[in-house]
Computed example of a mutant assay.
Amino acid sequence: MLDLVIDARQASIGPGFDVRRILPFRQRRMVGPFIFMDHAGPVDVAPALMPDLDVLPHPHIGLSTVSYLFGGQVTHRDSLGVEQIIRPGEVNWMTAGSGIAHSERFEDPAALAGGALEMIQTWVALPEADEEGAPSFANYQPHELPIFTDTGVWMRLIAGDAFGLRNDVKTHSPLFYLHAVLQPGARFGLPRGHQERAVYVAKGEVEVGGHRYGPGQMLVFTPGIDPVIVARQASTLMLLGGEPLGERFIWWNFVSSRKERIEQAKADWQAGRILLPPNDNAEFVPLPEDKSRPASNGPSPAPQALS
C-alpha cells in the first residue's frame, strides 16, 4: 500500500529561518511532476529579525514554483516586474521556463506576530517541450479555487483535477494538488486517475493500514492502491501527485531534463544574463560553490529559495 514514508529534514533558508524539507529525497526524487517541497513555520520572530528571513533575488529555470500559505503574508517580486503579496488561501504560480529571478520578502510585522507565518512551497517540473518557454506569473484568489465539504472533511483544490473538481490554475502536465482539513474520526481517500500520489501530514495524526503518521511525514502510495486515511486528530494534509515526467536533474534552484542546461544556467546567473527584479535589484544571492556535477540522484547545493 505504501511505497515509502518520507520524514522531513531540517533545512536552513537563511539565518534563523529553518524549514522542513520533504522533497527531493534520496530514495524518491519526485512524486508525479512535483520535485521539491518545503514546509516553513509557524515562524515567530522579533520584528528586528524580520530582514533575516527575507529570501533575496535568486534564479530558477525549468520549473514552476507554487506558494501556498496557511497564515501570514509574503511579498513576491520578480524579473517580469511583478509585485504580489500572497495571503492565506491564495496561490502564487510562477513558471520560470527559460529563466527568471524573484525574491520573497517578509515586510509586515503583523504577519509574523505570534507565529502567524506558515507556508508550503513546491516546485513542479516542466515537460521538456515547456522547459524553455517564456517566464510567467499568476496569482489566484480563494474564490477561484473550488472548495468541497463533507462530514468532517474540508478541502480546497489548489491546482489540477481531483474528486471531480477543476479550476483555472494553469498547469503544464496532468497533476493534482489539494489542501485538506480533517476532523477527528473523518475518513478520506485519494483522488483516482493519477499514477503517482502522496499525502503530506502538515498537522495532526492520521492512520493508514493500521499504522499512524504525524506531522512532517509524507506517505507515498503504491500506484493503483486506494487507501483509506483516517484522522486520529484534527489534521491538515497536502495531497499531491500526477503523471511522471521522466528523469530530471536538480542543482541549487535549477531543474532540467539536460545536465548541460544547468551548466548554462549557472553561467547565465554569474554573468547577469538572468535579470533581477526591477523593483528589488540592490542585492541578490550569488551562485553557490559548485562541489558536484548536477545529477538526478546526487548531492547539490541546498536551494536558497522557499520557492
Rank of each mutant, 00 (worst) to 15 (best):
R20Y: 11
R20K: 15
R21E: 14
R21I: 03
L23K: 04
L23M: 05
F25T: 03
R26F: 11
R26A: 11
R26L: 12
Q27V: 08
R28L: 15
R29W: 03
M30S: 14
V31F: 05
P33E: 04
F36H: 04
M37R: 08
H39I: 12
A40I: 09
P42D: 10
D44V: 10
D44K: 11
A46M: 14
A46T: 14
A46Y: 13
P47R: 07
P47Q: 10
D54L: 07
D54Q: 08
L56N: 07
I61S: 04
I61L: 05
G62F: 00
L63F: 11
L69N: 02
F70R: 12
G71S: 05
G72Q: 00
V74Y: 02
V74C: 06
T75R: 13
T75I: 10
R77D: 04
G81S: 14
V82S: 10
E83G: 09
E83A: 11
Q84G: 09
I86K: 01
I86D: 05
R87F: 12
R87A: 15
P88S: 12
P88A: 13
G89R: 11
E90K: 05
V91Y: 01
V91R: 01
W93R: 04
T95V: 06
T95S: 13
G97N: 04
S98T: 05
I100G: 01
R105G: 05
F106K: 00
P109I: 03
P109S: 06
A111T: 02
A111Y: 07
L112Y: 05
L112R: 06
G115L: 08
A116F: 03
L117H: 12
L117Q: 08
M119F: 04
I120L: 15
Q121P: 12
